[in-house]
C-alpha cells in the first residue's frame, strides 16, 4: 500500500485535502451497571490542518486520551464523526497514520528489528520494503547495531527511540503523539522535539497531546484545549497568547530607574541582569520608544505582549472552574 503511495510526496498528499484530521461532535459515555453514566468526552469538535503541528492540551481527565483513542479505533465512540485525510478514520486510512504512545508498549521478547518489521508489515509495507528500511531507521534514532537485541534489555529511553522509529517506519502522512516526551531525560525530549520538527518539515501533520506546555508552545501552530470532556479553547497559539492592546519592551540603560516619560506609562516591570522588561498600552508605544531613545537607553526588543502558555492554561482552567462554581 505504502509502496505505491510513497511515490507521492507527503506535501502532495496533504494538499489533496486541507484538513488532515476532522473530529466533530465526539462523545464518549461510559455506562456501568448500577452507576450513573459518565461522559468522558462531550461534543468535542476540532480540525487539524494538513502540514501543521496541532497541540491537544488539557489537565488529567480532560478527555485527551479518550479522544485520541476514538480517533485511532481503540475506543468505540458513543457518537461523532472522525475523519483522517478526508475519509472515515477506519483501518484502511490508518496505514497512513503513525502513533507514538506515552509508554513504549512492545513485546519484551522480540528484538528491535523484529518489532520494527512487525509494525511496518502491519502498516501495509512489503517484506522487502521493511527490510530495506530497518537498519536505516535504527541508525536514524540512535539504535544502530541494536537490531538483534531483545527489547527486555532496552532502557526506557531506547524503547522510546524505537517507538519513534515504529511511528515513522511507513512514512506516515499523519502522526499522533500521546505524551511522547513524558518521563524522558533531556536527550530523549530533544529527540522527540526533533522528530516533530522533522515531520513538520517533511509536510506531515502532527497531532500532539502533551502536558509539557513549553514544548507545545515551541512546536505547535495551533492548539485545542480540553477541559472536563469539552473544548475549552482553540486557535492559533499567537492568537490565544497575545494580549490585545499591549506591547512588551525589553530595554537596558545605565540607570536602575526607567526614564521619565516611561515610568508613568508602564503596566508591569521586571528587572533582571541589567535588563528591564515591561509592557505599555499600544497607544503609548511610540511615545515610550522615543522617550527611551532620548534618554540614551537601548531598546533590545519590542513585541506584542504575550503570556506564556502555562499562564493562559492556568487562567483558562481557573475561569472554567469558577463558572462551574457559580
Amino acid at each position: 500500500m505504502m509502496e505505491t503511495s510513497s511515490q507521492t510526496t507527503v506535501a502532495e498528499a496533504a494538499s489533496e485535502d486541507a484538513t488532515a484530521i476532522r473530529i466533530e461532535g465526539a462523545r464518549k459515555t461510559y455506562a456501568s451497571l448500577g452507576q450513573p453514566h459518565r461522559d468522558a468526552v462531550r461534543e468535542v469538535t476540532f480540525q487539524v490542518r494538513s502540514g501543521e503541528v496541532h497541540g491537544l492540551l488539557g489537565p488529567n481527565g480532560a478527555g485527551k486520551t479518550t479522544t485520541l483513542k476514538m480517533l485511532l479505533g481503540l475506543v468505540r465512540p458513543t457518537s461523532g464523526v472522525f475523519e483522517i485525510l478526508g475519509v472515515p478514520a477506519g483501518p484502511a486510512v490508518r496505514a497512513k497514520v503513525g502513533f507514538l504512545a506515552e509508554q513504549p508498549y512492545f513485546s519484551p521478547l522480540l528484538t528491535a528489528a523484529q518489532t520494527l518489521a512487525l509494525h511496518g508489515r502491519l502498516s501495509g509495507m512489503s517484506r522487502a520494503a521493511v527490510g530495506a528500511r530497518v537498519d536505516e531507521l535504527l541508525s536514524r534514532v540512535g539504535l544502530a547495531g541494536k537490531g538483534d537485541v531483545v527489547l527486555a534489555k532496552f532502557s526506557r529511553g531506547m524503547l522510546q527511540r524505537l517507538g519513534i522509529a515504529t511511528a515513522i517506519v511507513h512514512q506516515p502522512y499523519v502522526v499522533v503523539l500521546d505524551e511522547p516526551a513524558s518521563g524522558l531525560d533531556p536527550v530523549g525530549q530533544r529527540d522527540v522535539r526533533n522528530l516533530m520538527l522533522e515531520l513538520r518539515e517533511s509536510g506531515a501533520t502532527v497531532l500532539l497531546s502533551s502536558h509539557q506546555l513549553s514544548e507545545v508552545e515551541a512546536v505547535c501552530d495551533r492548539v485545542t484545549i480540553l477541559d472536563r470532556g469539552r473544548v475549552a479553547a482553540a486557535g492559533r497559539i499567537d492568537e490565544l497568547l497575545n494580549i490585545a492592546g499591549q506591547t512588551s519592551f525589553r530595554v537596558s540603560g545605565d540607570d536602575d530607574m526607567l526614564p521619565e516619560g516611561v515610568r508613568e506609562r508602564v503596566v508591569d516591570v521586571a528587572f533582571s541582569g541589567g535588563t528591564h522588561m515591561f509592557s505599555v498600552a499600544d497607544s503609548d508605544a511610540r511615545r515610550v520608544f522615543d522617550a527611551l531613545d532620548d534618554a540614551g537607553w537601548r531598546v533590545l526588543s519590542v513585541s506584542p505582549k504575550r503570556e506564556t502558555l502555562e499562564d493562559y492554561f492556568a487562567r483558562l482552567l481557573d475561569s472554567s472552574y469558577e463558572e462551574v462554581g457559580e
Binding site: M1, L72, G73, L74, P91, A92, V93, R94, A95, V97, F99, A101, Q103, Y105, F106, S107, H119, L122, S123, G124, T166, V176
Partner: peptide, 14 residues
C-alpha cells in the same frame, strides 16, 4: 494490560 495491543490496532489492522 501491557498495552502492546495499542501499537497493533492503531495500524491498519482489523
Amino acid at each position: 494490560e501491557r498495552r502492546t495491543v495499542y501499537g497493533v490496532l492503531v495500524r491498519s489492522v482489523r
